[in-house]
Simulated assay, not measured.
Amino acid sequence: MDKLNNQYEISYHQAVLLLILYRIMVGFTHLPAASILPGNQDIWITILFSTFYTILLCLPLLYLSNKFNSLNLIEYIEKIMGKTIGKIIGIFYVFFFLYATILLISIFVEILDAAIFPETPTWVTASMMLITSIYIAYKGFVAVARLGEFIIPFILVMILLFIILGYKNYDFTVLLPILKDSKFKDISIGAIDIGLRYFNILILTMITPNLKDKKDLNKIFFRSLIYSMVIASIIVIVVHSTLGIEYAKHVNFPFFTVTRMVDFGETIQGFDSLYLTSWIVGNIIKISGYLYFITVALGQITNIDNRKYIIPISVVILIIVLLLKDNKPILAVKQPTQNIITIMAAIFIFILPLIILTVYLFRRKKL
């Protein structure tokens, strides 16, 4: 397992960039926010409003990570809950990370197969992606952070350029009238749904011990949250103003569809290839991080070097992804997948941390 020394420290900027990428890749890929309440022209407002609920829902984990900033999530759960119960809860978190990774890879491969490499067998695209992720994860999270430091700015520039170049396709009248057709209750429900799915708080709890300056923890959380929510809302505005509100709900990968409608002209050739490259690399960085956290959590639960788990876990993931892909598409059948994600997120991001925080408050003098 990675030791906490200078070799494995993560800077403030690396952490912020990674958390921004991990959040916006969702909208960059399949944009589930297009279907949330209120389901109309005010979804972008719901995304911005969700920042408030996200902060509230993440407070238990944020508080605990500040108190135990030399330990990651799995380590301080065991310290607070005791060895046996702590390991059991840690195993649950391993399965949650595993489920999220399988879902992430399945969606990634589904889009690759459907829109980019329709003639390429699923096992080829999935294997190539996993082999790359295995190599990066084996180098440790510092490799993910350093790669992200160079690649993520390029990805953000690509998003910005496509947004600018697509201005001819925008019809902002579809976003009007603002807030007239939405109830505060519906906006709040949609905002809570988005807040519950802010998986980045789990990532932050896992990298806290490796931060160069642990006092930056709160600043990293708030800044990455605000930046990513603003970018996500802009993506929704672009998608809605290009495709329309209703059509955007039924397209499996809306932003990718929007980019294919951009007219580059004769002077810009192959620019769409840069988008595809940035999208693929962005997903690989995200998958590598998730794979790393699964194995680190397993390594800390079993006291075995996390690198010994990377290949076996990757093989398991590949098998499950292939079985899922052969069974039915994930994006086309959004339910019950979205409900399962919401329920699991509520448990692992808010309910369990709230219980752990309560136990800590009763036991803090002993701890």
Score class of each variant (00 low, 15 high):
T120C: 05
I351N: 00
T29R: 01
K249S: 01
N6L: 14
T120S: 08
P153V: 09
Y138S: 02
G265T: 15
I355E: 02
H250P: 00
N69D: 14
N210H: 10
I163H: 03
I226F: 13
L19E: 02
F141S: 01
I235P: 08
T125M: 06
I189K: 01
I163E: 07
R364D: 05
K219D: 07
G82V: 13
I341M: 02
F256S: 11
Q300D: 09
N66Q: 14
S233Q: 06
G90V: 07
L179C: 04
V94Q: 03
S11C: 08
E119D: 12
S288M: 05
I280K: 04
S106Q: 11
I343T: 14
T84A: 15
I349A: 01
V315W: 14
Y292V: 12
S278K: 00
I341K: 00
D186P: 07
N218P: 00
L156Y: 06
N210E: 11
A15C: 11
K286Y: 04
V321R: 01
I203C: 04
I36F: 03
G299M: 10
L165T: 06
V296A: 01
F253A: 15
K219R: 12
S182G: 07
G39D: 05
F199D: 14
V316Q: 03
V239R: 07
G166Q: 05
N5T: 15
Y167R: 08
A114N: 10
P60R: 02
N252P: 06
F264I: 02
V316F: 14
V262L: 12
I105Q: 01
I280H: 03
M344H: 05
P60Q: 03
A115Q: 13
K325M: 08
Q335F: 15
N169D: 14
V157L: 14
A137V: 00
G27A: 13
S273Q: 11
F150W: 13
D186A: 14
T208P: 01
V236D: 01
L179Q: 05
F293L: 10
S241Q: 08
I317V: 15
T101E: 09
G166H: 04
V109A: 09
L175Y: 06
N169Y: 09
G90Q: 02
V124W: 11
L291S: 00
V333L: 14
D186V: 11
L243Y: 09
D2M: 07
I234G: 02
A137K: 00
D216L: 05
N210D: 08
Y167W: 13
F154R: 02
T51K: 09
L56E: 14
D272W: 07
A33I: 05
Y93E: 12
Q300L: 15
L298G: 00
I10L: 05
L211D: 04
K214Q: 11
I347G: 00
F49D: 00
I207F: 11
I343C: 09
V230W: 12
M206H: 03
G39V: 04
P209I: 12
I189S: 04
Y247K: 13
I88M: 13
F293I: 10
F172V: 07
Y53N: 05
L156C: 04
F28D: 04
I301E: 06
I45A: 06
V142R: 08
G195Y: 02
I107V: 15
V239M: 11
R146F: 04
Y227T: 09
M344P: 02
T29K: 01
L367K: 07
A114W: 14
L352V: 15
L161R: 06
F150V: 09
L147A: 13
L161C: 13
F154C: 04
Q335K: 07
V94T: 12
I301W: 08
R307C: 03
